[in-house]
């Protein structure tokens, strides 16, 4: 099985690291497999652990273009797959009538259902591209169940059927990444077609590396303190545990406030950056015995 994406899990780790994404073993193995087996990759995990970022990093590392479909409630075929450009079609009909060139209905009919009048949406765009493409279907759990049905044809056969034109099959299979916050269970049919990866909060080492690569001017000792504190916060039973994105924000805050040492006073002053619920902040203050 040839792989044009990554040569091996180790290769995936190295090339993702080059573009600034520090993947752990599970992430790089699964990413490699998604490329090698040409199967979609379903990423699940809490918000802010770098799910979308992984897709972007794959695109950067392989020099592919990223096509993104942001999912939301009420997303439909016309905005995910393709749509006919009605206005242009109408103009075309009127133009042929006005010029009176005697073109019959059959000719016009054939004429207005061609590529020229087709508005391609992300899914179709990704399939028709001949260059390497990463297709990111973001927050797929936000869509209605019907859209999942729509995705099935695309995900398993990489083809789209347009009644007027026939079936469009991918010339070159895109690297498909689906992300989900697990706000609802995806259907078994979608899951079965994908490889699955659960991204979780990173361990101390990796998180420190991530923060240091993202935030310039953060010294080693402060980064260590910060990462340890975030890890402790995650151990508490909070409604929303701090994500990587939030620890990066915290690091930026500390830099901006010129705090060099993350002592208890500094933590309680800046806690609002990482904890967004009042009850969470209270719990943290109580458990970590911070000054109020």
């Amino acid at each position: 099985m040839s792989s044009s994406w990554f040569a091996s899990p180790a290769d995936a780790t190295a090339r993702l690291a080059e573009v600034g994404y520090l993947a752990d073993e599970a992430a790089s193995t699964t990413t490699f497999l998604a490329g090698a087996l040409e199967k979609p990759l379903l990423l699940e995990g809490p918000a802010g652990v770098g799910k979308t970022e992984l897709a972007k990093a794959v695109a950067r590392a392989t020099g592919a273009e990223l096509v993104r479909l942001q999912c939301y409630e009420g997303l439909d075929e016309a905005r995910a797959l393709y749509e006919w450009n009605y206005k242009k079609q109408l103009l075309r009909i009127q133009a042929s009538q006005a010029s009176g060139d005697g073109q019959g209905w059959d000719a016009t009919h054939d004429d207005i259902f061609t590529d020229e009048f087709l508005l391609t949406r992300p899914l179709l765009t990704a399939i028709r591209r001949e260059e390497p493409t990463v297709l990111l279907i973001d927050e797929v759990d936000k869509t209605d169940v019907e859209v999942e049905g729509l995705l099935l044809e695309v995900l398993s056969d990489f083809q789209v059927t347009i009644p007027e034109l026939g079936t469009v099959t991918a010339v070159r299979r895109p690297f498909v990444v689906l992300t989900s916050n697990a706000s609802r269970e995806l259907s078994e049919a979608v899951k079965r077609r994908c490889l699955y990866l659960h991204l979780d909060y990173p361990d101390l080492e990796r998180e420190r590396a991530i923060i240091r690569s993202q935030v310039a001017g953060l010294d080693e000792a402060l980064a260590t303190q910060l990462v340890a504190m975030v890890a402790r916060l995650r151990e508490l039973e909070l409604k929303k545990a701090p994500s990587i994105a939030e620890s990066v924000d915290w690091a930026r805050t500390l830099i901006a406030l010129e705090i060099r040492d993350l002592d208890d006073a500094a933590v309680s002053r800046t806690l609002g950056v990482v904890l967004k619920h009042a009850s969470d902040a209270e719990r943290a203050v109580k458990e970590l015995r911070l000054p109020r």
């Binding site: 099985m1 091996s8 073993e25 193995t29 699964t30 490699f32 497999l33 087996l37 490889l195 990866l197």
Partner: peptide, 18 residues
Amino acid sequence: RALDWDDRAVVREGYAAA
């Protein structure tokens, strides 16, 4: 088939992904 078998952790992750 796609993976090398020289690292048990990699095989396990691959298995789990599928």
